[in-house]
């Protein structure tokens, strides 16, 4: 940014016209910068402040500064540790394994499908994505419910009933998230796959490379960047999923589907511990940052 450093001693910076042009360049982005500062940096700063206090929603005259208490408390709280583990399970199962792989598979299949199939399948998958989170949550709640659609289907197939909302809640909400989020990965990969030049695949085919080999040695390396971007976006989005889980299980039974965002809400609003809940929110931010760093590293190393 600091381009003026290169000027010779004795001169007093670039000529006035250049300076003017530089100033004008700032003008269009000034409103956006200001809005970002007010609406993003402001609340984030306030959050950081709250995380270091014992602020409560009710039952407290005035909050006081408690230093790192909230954070040390989190690390000694078995419920917090449980929430971290469940968040990782939820993210790995639903985002990395589920949405990502299924999205790639769908995109690959759709490339070969006829136009009608492509349009219909695309529309159906995207429908799930367009639905508001809370609507999707209720839909999947009724799907997995004991008197729900899934059991009706199992009944018809004469298979035993499931009760996953109670017996395997974290798997149920993971499936729900896969159902909802796969469309995004599919779109990203459809775009990436269509960018692969036909000739490369064809010449590999002529050289005798089978489907599996072509996927491993040609397709995947060529869309590596899209995979990285998609993984990062998916992961960050999945880490903060709240409405879906809240509508389906409320983090229960017990705390068996209580991921970090649900834990955070539970502490901040049900237990009225705003300070502690906010500290957990910051830790969640940290988990997201860790994932991002890993992805960015992976992307860079392979270049």
């Amino acid at each position: 940014m600091s381009t003026t450093d290169l000027t010779d001693a004795g001169q007093t910076g670039p000529p006035p016209q250049v300076r003017m042009r530089r100033r004008m360049r700032w003008l269009p982005i000034a409103p956006a910068t200001a809005l970002l500062l007010i609406f993003l940096a402001g609340p984030i700063g306030y959050c950081v402040y709250i995380a270091f206090t014992d602020m409560q929603l009710t039952g407290q005259a005035s909050p006081s500064f408690v230093g790192f208490d909230n954070f040390t408390r989190a690390f000694h709280d078995p419920h917090f540790v449980n929430a971290v583990v469940l968040t990782l399970v939820f993210t790995v199962v639903s985002s990395i394994l589920g949405q990502n792989t299924l999205g790639l598979t769908l995109a690959g299949l759709m490339q070969r499908a006829s136009k009608t199939v492509r349009t219909v399948a695309g529309a159906v998958v995207i429908c799930a994505w367009v639905l508001p989170e809370i609507v999707a949550g209720f839909l999947l709640y009724t799907f997995f419910n004991r008197q729900g659609t899934l059991n009706a289907i199992l009944d018809w197939l004469q298979l035993p009933h499931q009760n996953w909302l109670y017996t395997l809640p974290i798997i149920a909400v993971s499936f729900a998230n896969i159902w909802r989020g796969t469309a995004f990965s599919m779109l990203v990969y459809s775009a990436a796959l269509s960018e692969i030049p036909q000739e490369v695949t064809e010449s590999a085919q002529i050289d005798g490379a089978g489907g599996g080999k072509r996927l491993w040695h040609i397709t995947l390396p060529m869309i590596r960047r899209s995979i990285g971007t998609n993984l990062m976006l998916n992961t960050l989005q999945t880490l903060s999923v709240f409405g879906l889980i809240w509508a389906m299980t409320r983090g229960g039974p017990g705390d068996r589907s209580q991921t970090l965002p649900v834990f955070m809400y539970d502490q901040a609003f049900n237990n009225a511990l705003i300070g502690y809940g906010t500290a957990v929110a910051l830790l969640l931010l940290l988990v997201g940052a860790l994932f991002s760093v890993v992805y960015l590293r992976l992307l860079r190393e392979e270049v």
Binding site: G13, W26, A30, A34, I38
Partner: peptide, 21 residues
């Protein structure tokens, strides 16, 4: 950077005031 800031700041301040208003 320095010369740029001299006008960026009033512009920024103006937007802030407008937004606040």
């Amino acid at each position: 950077m320095m010369p740029v800031r001299s006008t960026a700041f009033p512009a920024l301040a103006l937007t802030t005031v407008l937004a606040a208003a």
